[in-house]
Design a protein around this nucleic acid. Structure first.
Lengths: 217, 217
DNA sequence: GTCTATACCCGGATAGAC
DNA sequence: GTCTATCCGGGTATAGAC
């Protein structure tokens, strides 16, 4: 098990990376909102001023955590060796992995979607996020031909659905069992299939709805 | 325009309610994370200790905000006079309103889903949330008969999807235009229709998937 | 129910030595 | 790159008077 020791005295190693680790640990225990530079420093046994040699401020460190988060997210969600699968199968698998990643990496997911980071102020974050969207788009492009929704519309629908399942799963605060996670992941996968199958309904038009049906709301 | 004055000196009115208003205002400007009792007090021109006559602590005030949030959410999302509409139409309308509410009441939505409130510790919150789930269930029950997914499964899928669209819309941090909001709301509504139409795919079984397709992921 | 005053703690961030 | 020391500001929460 390589990498610097996570605990106890720590001096003159790769502090920047160690801080990211420590941050994830702290966030896991207290949530992003209660994360602090000081606490992370303490856990590493370094002075509270040490982190400022590597990160401009608290948000800068959190941004680094977010970048790592998106990298792991990408690695966890995107199919690597599944070129053989049909696009719909790959997308369903991606939806399942999306939910599993959120559940199994709650601290990272929290940083990505609840830290309220100013992504505009930290372009690195958006850059790290991009590949995930791209992966969905690539997969969707292998499906959506001719009429029906644009690739963007379908990809967006699939991401939104996976995201929604993930968020609602995490929301209840309660620790969820592995069975809960798996059940939710499977549900997200099936929802992805359903959306793909009925994707024609995703494209704009009022004329696909019951003619004469009032557009209430 | 009834209700206590939101600004300036304020004495001996309904402080509890005024604090909730002030909290929403503060959250709108600085986000939940940076909300503080002290700031809310300042805006009302009362002593920083005054709130503690009405709320045990910060989280207790936020819980009150959450309760109001769910009440308004319910009122905004649930169909009132649309008994005439087909269930699928009502559910699509609910999905649209779900997204619109999130976009137009960002501060409240933030408290509901990003404040990290301990719902277990504040049963009032869950109680206020319940009617929304119930409304989805009621509507779904008018649809899902016989084979196919349980009402729970379908309701969950619809809520997750609406939720996902809403969260991703808000996520980018950037202010979204009314057109963005409306486009997203419509997309969520169409996704709801698509899920309803293909709801048979939402029920468990591996045997609805391509026979022989490996269940990767 | 609200005020004044205060005690307390903690986090952010900097200066300057090593 | 890290440490020691320190300043500063801010929020939470309580005590006791009115």
């Amino acid at each position: 098990m390589p990498g610097p020791a996570k605990r106890g005295r720590y001096h003159h190693g790769d502090l920047a990376a160690a801080l990211v680790d420590a941050a994830i640990e702290v966030i896991g225990e207290r949530g992003v909102r209660d994360f602090s530079m000081a606490e992370a420093s303490r856990r590493l046994g370094v002075a509270v001023s040490a982190p400022y040699a590597h990160f401009a401020d608290r948000d800068d460190l959190l941004a680094a955590v977010a970048v790592r988060g998106y990298q792991q997210f990408y690695a966890a969600v995107v199919p690597q060796v599944e070129a053989g699968l049909a696009p719909a199968d790959r997308l369903a698998a991606m939806a399942r992995r999306y939910v599993r990643f959120a559940a199994r990496n709650r601290p990272l997911f929290e940083v990505l979607y609840q830290a309220g980071l100013d992504k505009a102020g930290h372009p690195e974050i958006e850059a790290a996020e991009q590949p995930i969207d791209d992966a969905f788009m690539t997969c969707v492009n292998a499906i959506s031909g001719g009429s029906g929704p644009t690739a963007e519309e379908l990809a967006w629908a699939l991401e939104a659905t996976a995201h929604g399942y993930a968020m609602l799963l995490l929301d209840s605060g309660k620790q969820r069992s592995d069975e809960d996670v798996e059940r939710t992941a499977e549900a997200a996968g099936r929802a992805a299939r359903a959306l793909i199958k009925s994707r024609r309904l995703l494209s704009d038009p009022a004329d696909l709805q019951q003619p004469g049906a009032p557009r209430a709301g």
